[in-house]
Write a protein that binds this DNA or RNA. Structure first.
Lengths: 198, 198
DNA sequence: TCCAGGAAGCTATTAATGATAGCTGTTAGG
DNA sequence: CCTAACAGCTATCATTAATAGCTTCCTGGA
């Protein structure tokens, strides 16, 4: 019998595909093995456990996603960059719902590879914030707000959380616009008890 | 042998508790039955399936959560109400991580009870938006933005998505402040191609 | 060219879990 | 008091993650 010729990368790639098509809950070793033309226990030659497979998918998804966001921002600055990243974010998440969801998983403590990918992902956004003159803690707060708004919107949308029959595209456009406004005045926008410097 | 005296409500309540303590992935019928002092198949007398149990938890969680948000907003208006709701949101979500996560599940099509609860949840926020003079589609867009930002922040925080060693409390404060500013100018804040009325 | 060892894939098996069938004892209502 | 509904039980099954141990491929070194 000819050998299937698998390796960890192919297994993870196919698993990500399966997660997108069937949903993360239907990502099962049996289904994955069938898809790869292999028996279920054979997968353990390439992956330590289902949980570690998910971790690998998360790392790969973050890397792909960071690339997509980075490319969207290339050659743009400030509002242009922010808007382009926001739309790229939503498009990628809705196109790859399985990867996106699994990609939310935080790096396991000590997984420096995964941590590096996560850092790169944040760095892409931080670079855009620098265009608004934000750095240090200001930039971190701004990135967190940006991530929160987009991740929240996209995950609510994907899970069917927006029940009202009102255009979700339009709502997203207004959210993005609000983000643009917020970032434009982020450093001068005091929080309560922390007034703008004189 | 004395009977355990269960009913669907108690089962669902205990399941929600278990989900909070052990995480939604460890919510298992065996664990739940043990906790209730009953054998696993007995649960099927009160619940049709694990999935339907999750659906019931989601409905109950939404109802509790809507109550909490509603109470936070009582006697307040505009910024006060918004800020109070935001902080109540975060506190409840972090206090009840299992319920919160399961509560994101959308009502099953045709589950009018669950749909009613979801509507009430949205209505609480819509009422606060009315204080800003928002109604109709404007209010829906604003509610969606508000939900997105808070849900995104809280779910990233709960899943360990904020890796940087910078105060998450402070970041949340600034997010809330940005939301207040966004809502204050929501109706006059044009989106691209939709200018403010003359 | 050969062959030796590492590794890829397999079969067999186990524990955990969701689910169903069918029995029995409890208990509320007539 | 007694009967019928039903809550909870035992037994069982299918699916799934995981492990053990065997076999066979195939590559690297002599």
């Amino acid at each position: 019998m000819p050998r299937a010729g698998l390796n960890t990368d192919r297994v993870v790639a196919e698993a990500a595909e399966l997660a997108d098509e069937a949903g993360p809950d239907h990502l099962t070793l049996a289904a994955l093995a069938a898809r790869l033309g292999v028996r279920q226990p054979s997968l353990y030659k390439h992956v330590a456990s289902l949980d570690s497979l998910r971790q690998l998918i998360a790392k790969r998804a973050k890397a792909e996603f960071a690339d997509v966001l980075g490319r969207a921002a290339i050659g743009r600055a400030r509002d242009d960059a922010l808007v382009a990243m926001a739309y790229a974010w939503r498009a990628w998440a809705l196109d790859h719902p399985g990867r996106y969801q699994i990609g939310q998983r935080a790096p396991a403590p000590g997984d420096v590879d995964h941590q590096a990918v996560a850092d790169r992902f944040v760095a892409v956004m931080t670079a855009v914030m620098a265009g608004y003159g934000l750095d240090g803690d200001d930039a971190i707060d701004a990135v967190r707000a940006f991530r929160s708004a987009l991740h929240g919107f996209v995950s609510l949308e994907a899970s069917g959380g927006f029940g009202m029959p009102v255009s979700v595209d339009r709502s997203f456009g207004r959210l993005v616009h609000a983000l643009v406004r917020a970032m434009s005045s982020w450093s001068t926008a005091s929080e309560p008890g922390r007034e703008v410097p004189a």
